[in-house]
């Protein structure tokens, strides 16, 4: 039994597998579909937002009903920054990230204690509070009319944001990809493993020496930065911020996105964003205005049949294709069935 190669097992887990490479090739291939750039841009931003929620929900197990707080904060900061300080997109992105990092850090202390219900209420409360502030501070935010008059400078001083979303989508996709790589690193690091451990069993996590609170603060702050960047992208590529960025609907939708794609797995948010937008498109064409009925139905059905079913299906497809491929080419990759992505 001692022929198990532990170093190999340890290192093989974070290796890139073909579906991952295919996924990103396909994503960048979308740049060749100019007519879809606007919706693709929305998908990329939603994916980043969902990735952010997945980091705290799927990995650290914090149920948040108010993740839009950070999306909205990032969106407003980026908008205000562009109007009052500087129109450079990347600087705006950094400003939003920094501000949301601070906001995330401060609010993280509120979600450390308590049950799922208290966490859920506090996250919801923070988002509602911010929404109310944005609503009342109309002199700054434009209130219910939204923040208008945002003009963005050229990206890197070279690329102008065009009406067809070409620059926007490229920009969002690249940001998403870079942040995804970072998140992927994080998830496969000791830090990432300790988050899963905390989600699985906080009591034991502390008993193997994991400082639970500090880790939760760190990941909550990290996720807030991601959500803030998603919000900033939203503002910069649409040049408008509406109150709805802070709404409950946003928080609930992004939760659904993560659930559709599968929580606790990096591609969940990405695939979910794609699925969600397609569903939204299709359902609102079917029954405009009432499409949330079907979204609700899907949620209920998904929970009743078990959330992990679709993901398991995906896994078996991946396995099947891998096996077919190997039997076709006759190659044998050792230890290819270890761990998840």
């Amino acid at each position: 039994m001692s022929n198990v190669n532990v170093p190999h097992l340890l290192l093989s887990r974070h290796r890139w597998r073909w579906p991952e490479i295919a996924f990103w090739l396909a994503a960048f291939a979308c740049l060749l579909m100019p007519s879809k750039h606007l919706i693709l841009n929305e998908i990329a931003i939603l994916a980043l937002f969902a990735l952010s929620l997945d980091l705290i929900l799927g990995y650290a197990g914090i149920v948040s009903l108010g993740h839009a707080a950070f999306l909205g904060a990032g969106a407003y900061i980026a908008g205000l920054f562009a109007i009052h300080v500087n129109g450079d997109p990347l600087l705006g992105l950094l400003a939003a990230a920094a501000a949301c990092g601070v906001l995330g850090f401060i609010t993280s202390f509120l979600v450390l204690r308590g049950s799922d219900l208290t966490r859920l209420m506090i996250t919801l409360g923070v988002a509602l509070l911010l929404g109310e502030i944005a609503n009342r501070a109309a002199w700054l935010t434009g209130g219910a009319d939204g923040l208008q008059g945002i003009t963005m400078g050229r990206l890197l001083g070279l690329f102008e944001f065009d009406l067809y979303g070409r620059t926007s989508f490229t920009y969002s996709l690249v940001v998403l990809f870079v942040l995804f790589l970072l998140a992927r690193r994080l998830i496969h690091s000791p830090f990432g493993h300790s988050l899963t451990a905390i989600r699985d069993n906080p009591l034991r996590a502390a008993a193997v020496g994991i400082p639970v609170k500090r880790r939760l603060i760190a990941i909550y702050t990290f996720a807030a930065i991601y959500a803030g960047i998603a919000g900033a992208l939203l503002t910069q590529t649409t040049q408008f911020v509406g109150l709805d960025v802070l709404s409950f609907q946003r928080s609930a939708d992004v939760m659904l996105v993560v659930i559709i794609g599968g929580a606790g797995y990096l591609y969940g948010g990405l695939i979910g964003a794609l699925g969600f937008k397609f569903l939204q498109d299709w359902l609102s064409a079917l029954t405009p205005q009432y499409w949330h009925f079907w979204i609700g139905l899907i949620l209920v059905a998904l929970v009743l049949i078990g959330r992990d079913r679709p993901r398991r299906l995906l896994h078996s497809v991946q396995k099947y294709v891998t096996n077919r491929w190997q039997s076709l080419t006759g190659s044998k990759a050792a230890g290819s069935s270890t761990g998840g992505a």
Binding site: L10, S189, H193, V208, I210
Partner: peptide, 15 residues
Amino acid sequence: TERLGRGNDWLRTAG
């Protein structure tokens, strides 16, 4: 890793 005090390491791979 935690015992080695490297649990905060978030850029390197576990192991």
